[in-house]
Structures are given as C-alpha cells and as structure tokens.
Simulated assay, not measured.
Amino acid sequence: MNNSLRVLVADGDPQVCSALKLFLEQQPDTLVSVAGRAEEAANLAAGSTPDIILLDWQLACKSSCGGFIHELRRLCPGAAVIAMSARPEARQAALNGGADRFFSKNENPCILLSSLGKLAGRKAADCPSR
C-alpha cells in the first residue's frame, strides 16, 4: 500500500518551484512534481494524480483564474487545491475561484506544511529545523 503524499507544485517562478520542491521533499513519504506553466500543470495533474496541488494564483489567472481550478478538478477530482500568492489580498478571489485553501508566499512555510497535513488527513508535519 502506497502511503506517499503526492504534491504538484505549479508556479511560473523557477526559484519558487525549486524552493518548494526542496522544502517539501524533506517531509517523509512526500513525492513532489513541478510545473512552470498552466498546460504542464494540467498534464501532470492528469498523469500523476496528485493528492494536493499548490497552485500559484497568477499562473491560474493566466488561464482564466477559477476556470483553471475547475479544469484541474476535472482532470484530478480527488486533489485538494491550495492557491498561493505573494499578494495576500488575492486570498478571497482564490477561495471564490474554487481553491480549498490559500497560502500567502510571505507566510512562514511551516503554515503550508500544517495545511498539507490537514488536507491529507495526516498529523501536521513538523517544520524542518534550520
């Protein structure tokens, strides 16, 4: 039985993708895939069936904001979607657009780990010590 948490990070900024991938892969039983464009995210969502999609809100809005979240849900119905943005004021638009949760990129990444644990039905992960 595979108990791995599959996370898809979809963000147009390669540095954000790399940082999140490195951060998340420190968690036990976590598999991370990365997409830099909306089309790539859709293909990976359909092919890898992630449990959670971390979606940059700006990337989603290049493909009609909430419409892209609905497309991801069609391709991967079981996945939870966490919208992310460096602009905290995007929170309400992202939630209205269908995101399950919102994460401000300015927040402590440990908050993101806690959200991932809750959405995956797991004990909240400990934040890696630095």
Rank of each mutant, 00 (worst) to 15 (best):
M1F: 11
M1A: 13
N3K: 14
N3W: 10
S4E: 13
L5A: 10
R6A: 12
V7W: 09
L8S: 07
L8V: 03
L8T: 01
A10N: 05
D11H: 06
D11M: 00
D11Q: 00
G12Q: 02
G12Y: 00
P14R: 00
L20D: 01
K21D: 13
L22Q: 12
L24Y: 02
L24Q: 03
Q27I: 15
Q27Y: 03
P28N: 05
P28Q: 07
D29P: 06
D29G: 09
D29M: 12
T30V: 15
L31P: 06
L31H: 12
S33G: 10
S33D: 13
V34C: 06
V34K: 00
A35E: 03
A35D: 03
A35G: 07
G36Y: 05
R37Y: 11
A38T: 08
E40R: 14
A41V: 00
A41T: 00
A42W: 02
N43A: 15
L44C: 05
L44R: 13
L44P: 03
L44E: 05
A45W: 07
A45E: 06
A46H: 13
A46W: 12
S48H: 10
P50I: 08
I53R: 02
I53W: 04
L55M: 10
D56A: 00
D56F: 00
D56K: 00
W57T: 01
W57M: 01
Q58H: 12
K62F: 01
K62N: 09
S63R: 11
S63G: 01
S64I: 09
S64M: 10
G66E: 07
G66R: 00
G67N: 12
F68C: 07
F68L: 07
F68Y: 10
I69N: 06
E71S: 13
L72H: 08
L72W: 08
R74C: 12
R74Y: 11
L75P: 06
L75G: 08
C76F: 06
C76L: 06
P77S: 09
P77R: 06
A80Q: 11
V81N: 01
A83C: 07
A83M: 01
S85E: 00
S85W: 00
A86G: 09
A86E: 02
R87L: 15
P88H: 05
E89S: 15
E89H: 14
A90W: 11
A90R: 14
Q92G: 08
Q92E: 15
A93Q: 14
G97L: 04
G98R: 05
G98T: 05
D100P: 04
F102H: 01
F102D: 03
F102Y: 04
F103K: 01
K105W: 01
K105R: 14
N106W: 06
N106G: 14
N106L: 14
N106R: 12
E107I: 02
N108G: 08
N108D: 15
C110Q: 10
I111A: 14
L112K: 05
L113I: 03
S114E: 12
L116S: 04
L116H: 03
G117C: 07
G117L: 07
G117W: 05
L119Y: 05
R122G: 02
R122L: 11
A125T: 04
D126F: 10
D126G: 12
C127I: 01
P128G: 04
R130F: 13
